[in-house]
Design a protein around this nucleic acid. Structure first.
Lengths: 152, 152
DNA sequence: CGTGATAGGACTTATTGAGTGTTAGCGCCA
DNA sequence: TGGCGCTAACACTCAATAAGTCCTATCACG
């Protein structure tokens, strides 16, 4: 039920990369200062993103990172999965692996529904959407409800 | 993005309490065996639920726990908040407290949308719903999509 | 008054988030 | 062509939190 710092940083770094979209690689340090992320921690994250095939890296003086594919092809969910593993796990494992006895049998369906709603958001929004500031209509609609801006 | 063991256990304990709905209090040990929860950890959780005013406890030979109010008046969100604090935080703080620079400005709206969709599920489902196995239609609809049952 | 139950800490242990330091590869330039 | 400054890559530490255990006081009822 919480979005980790790692996931937040990873998405922000990807968005920044998308915004600096040229053929020249972007240095990790520039990403760090632009998005206010601890540099060393960011390098860790970039390593995982590279491992997942979301970014390409280049060493040397003119080195840095660039997106491995078009920003519009990368969803927020892809980024989160790359650094955090599966979305919406229960006790660290996929919901369907848990055993629910008797009275709480229906709880599994609740967790599945939570996951479904979560996916609807993060799978639909792409890195390019965030970078351009233009979110899909259905997402904007959710975020426009003033009730959702209060902490409860 | 994960449901903690504590939250899962707490909801299951509440559901079990709702299902054993008589005037007699239910002993912690019975809840533990029925829902397969470590007894000592469960006692911790029940303490927090009591503190939040969701359950009433009774000591002594005929003691145990019972719901403090009607099961239909208690949402899953209430239970989770009692043991975990606010739903859907970003880096441990409410999303609206984070600062998003430049390119990632729209990201805040994404996290708000995530929170909104999360709330729609857990605020709507009550402990009574789960105990009876009859979830609200909108939730059932989400859980019926076979796509949502695969881990991705 | 004694049995059986909750109350509620204090105390391990494991996991993971967060951050640091070191190593090794690349490209330029002398 | 050989070294030097730049970069990513990787291994590692530290801290916080989650998960689970254990112990002792306290209370209620028969």
């Amino acid at each position: 039920m919480r979005i980790s710092a790692k996931a937040d940083y990873a998405v922000r770094a990807m968005v920044e990369l998308a915004a600096s979209a040229s053929e020249k690689p972007v240095k990790a340090e520039r990403l760090a200062t632009a998005q206010d992320i601890p540099l060393n921690f960011l390098e860790n994250i970039l390593g995982e993103l590279r491992h997942a095939g979301l970014v390409r890296s280049h060493r040397g003086a003119e080195g840095g990172f660039r997106l491995a594919k078009d920003a519009a092809e990368i969803s927020v969910a892809d980024v989160i999965r790359a650094v955090e593993g599966p979305l919406a796990s229960v006790r660290g494992a996929p919901p369907e692996e848990s055993q629910y006895n008797g009275a709480s049998e229906a709880l599994l369906r609740v967790w599945i529904a939570v996951r479904a709603n979560l996916r609807h958001v993060v799978e639909e929004v792409t890195v390019a959407d965030v970078a351009s500031g233009k979110l899909p209509k259905s997402i904007d609609k959710l975020a426009d409800d003033p009730d959702m801006w209060v902490t409860r």
